[in-house]
Structure formats: C-alpha cells, structure tokens
Lab assay of single mutants.
Amino acid sequence: MIVFVRFNSSHGFPVEVDSDTSIFQLKEVVAKRQGVPADQLRVIFAGKELRNDWTVQNCDLDQQSIVHIVQRPWRKGQEMNATGGDDPRNAAGGCEREPQSLTRVDLSSSVLPGDSVGLAVILHTDSRKDSPPAGSPAGRSIYNSFYVYCKGPCQRVQPGKLRVQCSTCRQATLTLTQGPSCWDDVLIPNRMSGECQSPHCPGTSAEFFFKCGAHPTSDKETSVALHLIATNSRNITCITCTDVRSPVLVFQCNSRHVICLDCFHLYCVTRLNDRQFVHDPQLGYSLPCVAGCPNSLIKELHHFRILGEEQYNRYQQYGAEECVLQMGGVLCPRPGCGAGLLPEPDQRKVTCEGGNGLGCGFAFCRECKEAYHEGECSAVFEASGTTTQAYRVDERAAEQARWEAASKETIKKTTKPCPRCHVPVEKNGGCMHMKCPQPQCRLEWCWNCGCEWNRVCMGDHWFDV
C-alpha cells in the first residue's frame, strides 16, 4: 500500500509500505531520502505521535493516508518512550493509558441525555464484534464512529474520518494533550489543546475536521460531520418502519427517538411537499423529531443533505422563500418566477423588478396576487391545505425507538455506581478489583462488596467470576 509523507509540512511524497511495516522502518526510509538522522524524526498522525514499535496496521493507516513527519531533536526523557523501550505506560498493571487514536474515538455516547454525564468515556458498548469485510486488514473493525456528507465523488452519507490540525499553522502536526470525549470537544473551536510539532510553531489549540472515509482524499478535501447519525450498535428499532437498520439518525429530543435514513428521507420529502418545515429565527429551515417532541429541531442543517441534490435544492429554495415571508415580504405569483420581494408595508401595487435578471417585471396586487387592478379585489380565496398535519407515529413504536432507553438498560445490566462519587462504572470481565475512572475520584473498590478495596476482598473473592 501507499502512504503519503509530508516532511516538515512540505509537499508530500509517496512511500510504499506493508501492513506489518513498523513506524521506525518508515522513519528509516524517510531519513534516507531526506539525509537526516532517523532518531530525530517524529511521525504524527490523527493528533498522535506514533511509536517506533507500532506497525502501519496498528495505527489504522489506510491506503493513501497522509502522515506528517517532522525533524525535531529529542528532548530529555522522550527518546526512550518513542523507541518502544522502557515506557512506564506499558508496564503490566499500570494505570496510565495511551491517548486514544482519533481513528478509534467514539462519540456516540454523547447523544445520551444530559443526566448521563461521564458515560462518553466510561461506558463502552460490546456491539462492535462484526466481522471485518472481505479485503480489510485482519482485526480491523467495521464499526463506524462518525458519518459525514461527502460532496465529492460519493454525493451521499458516508463513514467519516476525524482529523485534527494546529489552529495556528493549519498543519496536521499537532499532538493532542488528551483525546475528545464528546461532540462539544470536536465542534467547539479551541476547546481542546495540544502541542504543535512543526518547527518554530508555538500553536497549542486544536482544530478538528472530518474527511470522507470511503475514498482517498487530499489535504484540502473536508466534509461536514453529521453528528446525529450513528451506527445502530444498540439495535434500536426505527420509529417509523420498526426495522432494525444501521446507520440511524438520533433526534435530540428527551427520548432520543431513532429513525433509519430511508424513513428520514421520506419524512423530509413529505414535509417538504406540504411546505411544513419549521422556520426558526436562529436555526433556519428545519424539522423536529418525527414524533413531534418539543425542543427537538435539527440544529445542523447539513443533515438535510440526505435528501439528495434535487430535493436539497428545493429545500434551500423553500427556506429562502419562507425567510422572505417571515420578513413581511411577498413572492411573485407569476408561474416560473417566484422571486422574493420586500415592498413597503402599505404598498398595494407590487412590481417584480426586472433588474439584474432576477425579476420578471410582472405587476400584481398584494392582496389577491392577481395582475394589478384598481378598486376592490374580486375574490380572495383562503389558501387550502395549509394546516399542519401531524406525522403519524405509532405510540408503541415510539416507545421502542428510544436510544436513551437502550442506554439505561445497558447501564443497569453492566454497571454499578462507584461507592464514593456514584458514577456508573462498567465491568466487562476481569477481577473484582475496580478503579473509578473519574479523575477527581480514582477510588479503588470491590465490585462484589461495593466497598473500598481491602485485604478481605483480596483474599476471599479477588478473582471470582
């Protein structure tokens, strides 16, 4: 396979590697080409510095992935760790964990309700045991953590790749202090920090972006993250068709209702045909949960890209028209025109101005929308079919299609509260000796007794199943 190397943020060049090629071997190839010592090179990928003893497969490097290699003399205490030698983080029983690669970060837990604080980093599902597709590297999971809308060759929703760059020099040479644990960490600028490894760059702020994971991409090709779309790892039924499908869209209502993408497309087109989208002054033209839940309008309007190009163009047109109407304007009634106009409040005669090729020149009556006339309008008909009709959803289907309910059931079956801080902690095999993952707590306690870890627990039921 081919990976592209950008040395000291210059133009990239291809390097041929195998899945079992080590990072140090990659350094040696680059060092020979650039005429520099291999031990002064640092390989940066997806916000993480890659260790010498890791392989291309370990690092989730795919065909035509772009890695950054910078030349920086080692500072005291760094060289041993980078070589894969006596790194205290690798000691058996050590409590410190390697910062998780962005290629394996899962933010789907952050669609849980606000009262489930902490689960994004504490609760991990076991539903990723799908067998890898044919042709994928051994052991590589097909679980997708992110979804994007690819405006490039795909023109559809695709699995996405999370990447990070330095907000100062805009190069992907920043190593994160810690990985993101929720969508806010990724979507809110300057929320996460790190250290830029580019020479002479003092940058410390992280800037995240997404790429389409279905095809090789260049540095400049980015895609918009659709953070309401998630892999259906909890096997929730769709609120409309009641099938279990994946991926799904999880509405931001209190129940976190789930809808499959085909039904979401149908829901949007139906509402669009009836012009029953909601115009929100802050958000724009949007839709609420299909069950009509309060405070559930979709905030990231790129989710409506699921409509496809033709329907999305209609959505944008109707949204612009609705904006004009909300501002007190009118639409030209001549067939084939429909231009938005903003006449004076007491102006009865409205002319669709033909300047700049935008208007048709038609003069019409503001009251009856017919060709302009003197005197009273002959008839004014009330528009028919403008009443909002509820999208029919079966109550039982709505009850079963809740992301929140599956989460709470998982928590109930696989977790116990920490005796000190009461945060839910998952036990997935292993011994009875637990350690609270909350940095402010870190209590060592017994899963069996529910009390602080002691010699009695150690001698009596340390390794009970």
Rank of each mutant, 00 (worst) to 15 (best):
P88S: 10
F24G: 11
T388A: 13
H373G: 02
Q178N: 13
P14D: 02
G284K: 03
G114W: 06
C154I: 01
A405V: 13
C377I: 02
P294I: 07
R256K: 14
L249F: 13
N254F: 09
A38C: 07
D39Y: 04
G328M: 04
D62L: 08
V117L: 12
W403E: 02
W445S: 04
N58E: 15
T410S: 09
G84Q: 10
E49F: 00
R392V: 09
N58C: 07
P132Q: 12
P216N: 12
P419Q: 04
A406N: 14
N448S: 08
C457H: 03
L26E: 00
G35C: 08
T103V: 08
R51P: 11
L249R: 01
E28S: 08
S9C: 04
P281L: 08
N454R: 13
G194M: 06
Q276E: 11
L301E: 09
G114T: 13
L174N: 02
R163M: 13
D126E: 10
C352E: 02
P424C: 06
N428E: 15
R33I: 06
G328D: 06
V56A: 04
V290C: 09
N448E: 03
F264T: 01
H303N: 02
Q347P: 05
V15A: 02
Q276H: 07
E309G: 09
K427Q: 09
S19D: 07
A82Y: 12
V3C: 05
D464H: 15
S384A: 12
I23A: 02
P343I: 08
C441R: 00
R140L: 09
E376P: 10
Q78C: 14
S296F: 03
C352L: 02
V67D: 01
N190S: 11
V3E: 03
Q165P: 01
Y318G: 00
Q165G: 08
F364L: 04
L61E: 00
L342P: 04
Q197L: 13
P132K: 10
A291Y: 10
K299D: 08
V258K: 00
R455G: 15
T177N: 13
E309P: 15
T231E: 11
V29A: 12
G459D: 15
L176T: 06
E404T: 10
F463C: 01
K412Y: 11
T410R: 09
M458R: 15
V423R: 14
R72W: 14
G354Y: 11
A291D: 05
G203S: 04
P37K: 08
N454T: 15
F463A: 00
L341E: 04
L261N: 02
R245P: 02
I69N: 00
Y143N: 08
D20W: 04
Q57A: 13
L162P: 00
C196V: 00
T237C: 10
S246N: 11
V393M: 08
E221T: 08
G308M: 04
G213M: 07
G135C: 11
P419C: 03
R75G: 13
A320S: 12
Y267H: 05
D130E: 11
V393D: 03
C201R: 00
K369T: 05
V56G: 01
Q178R: 13
L107Q: 14
V30Y: 00
A92K: 13
A371W: 15
G359R: 13
E310S: 06
E374A: 08
N295L: 05
G135I: 13
Y143D: 05
V393H: 06
K48Y: 03
G429A: 15
Q34V: 15
S22G: 03
L123D: 15
S101M: 10
W462M: 08
T168D: 10
T175H: 07
I122L: 14
V290I: 10
I2R: 13
V29C: 10
N81M: 14
A38W: 04
A291S: 08
Y318Q: 04
P288Q: 07
R72N: 15
G94T: 13
V3S: 02
L358R: 14
E322M: 04
E28N: 08
I69Q: 00
V117S: 15
M432K: 04
C150E: 00
S101I: 08
L443D: 07
P424S: 06
L301K: 09
N232F: 00
Y312L: 04
I259N: 01
C196K: 01
S108Y: 06
G328C: 04
Q34I: 15
L287G: 01
L226K: 00
R42G: 05
C436L: 01
L287P: 00
L119W: 10
S205L: 11
A406R: 13
Y149P: 02
Q171K: 15
I188Q: 12
R191V: 08
D60G: 15
D464C: 15
A363L: 12
G93Y: 11
I2F: 09
S108I: 06
R72I: 14
A401F: 02
R163S: 15
S101R: 09
S384Y: 10
V269M: 04
F4H: 10
C377N: 02
V164C: 05
F264H: 01
N454Y: 01
K412L: 11
E395I: 10
A134Q: 11
L112Q: 14
I66K: 02
D274M: 06
T387W: 08
V56N: 00
L50N: 00
C337T: 03
S110A: 12
D219V: 08
K32L: 15
R305H: 08
G84F: 13
H215R: 00
Q389F: 10
C59W: 02
T103Y: 09
A120F: 04
C59L: 05
S9A: 04
N190K: 10
V244D: 03
T55M: 07
I23G: 00
G361V: 03
R396D: 14
K220A: 13
L26A: 00
L272A: 02
V36Y: 04
A397K: 07
G35L: 05
V36P: 01
I259L: 07
R305M: 13
R366N: 08
T103R: 11
T103D: 14
E321R: 07
G179C: 04
K427Y: 15
R97Y: 11
E376F: 08
V121R: 15
G94H: 13
G338P: 04
P137W: 10
L342K: 08
K161V: 14
L443P: 02
W445G: 02
S109P: 13
L325D: 04
T175Y: 08
L102V: 11
F7R: 02
N81Q: 13
E395Q: 13
P247G: 01
H227N: 15
M432T: 06
G336L: 09
F208K: 00
K220Y: 09
Q57K: 12
Y315V: 13
V465R: 04
K408Q: 11
Q78A: 15
L301Q: 08
S246R: 04
V330P: 03
H11S: 05
C196S: 00
K27S: 02
G85Q: 11
C289S: 02
R163L: 11
E96F: 09
T351V: 07
F277D: 02
G284P: 01
C150P: 00
C421Q: 00
V186C: 06
V330M: 11
R271L: 07
S116N: 14
P153L: 07
V164P: 03
T222D: 10
V380S: 08
E321M: 07
G135Q: 11
F4E: 10
E79M: 11
I142P: 12
C436W: 00
A230S: 13
A371N: 10
C446A: 01
L119H: 15
K161E: 14
G203I: 02
T83P: 14
G77C: 14
E367Q: 11
W453N: 00
F4D: 05
L341N: 14
L341M: 12
A206G: 08
D87H: 10
F24N: 07
T237N: 12
Q57V: 06
L307K: 01
D464A: 15
T242G: 15
Q178A: 12
S131P: 11
K369V: 04
F13S: 04
A363D: 14
N295S: 10
Q158F: 03
F146I: 06
P439A: 13
Q316I: 14
Y315E: 00
G160H: 00
A31I: 00
R51S: 08
V56E: 00
K349E: 08
P281M: 07
P14S: 04
V186S: 01
E399R: 14
V111S: 12
C59D: 01
R366P: 04
L41C: 04
N232D: 00
S19N: 11
V148W: 01
A172N: 14
L301D: 08
G450A: 14
S407P: 13
R104N: 13
L342Q: 08
P281N: 09
K435D: 13
A92D: 12
E353Y: 07
Q63Y: 09
F210K: 01
Q40V: 05
C150H: 00
A134T: 10
F208S: 02
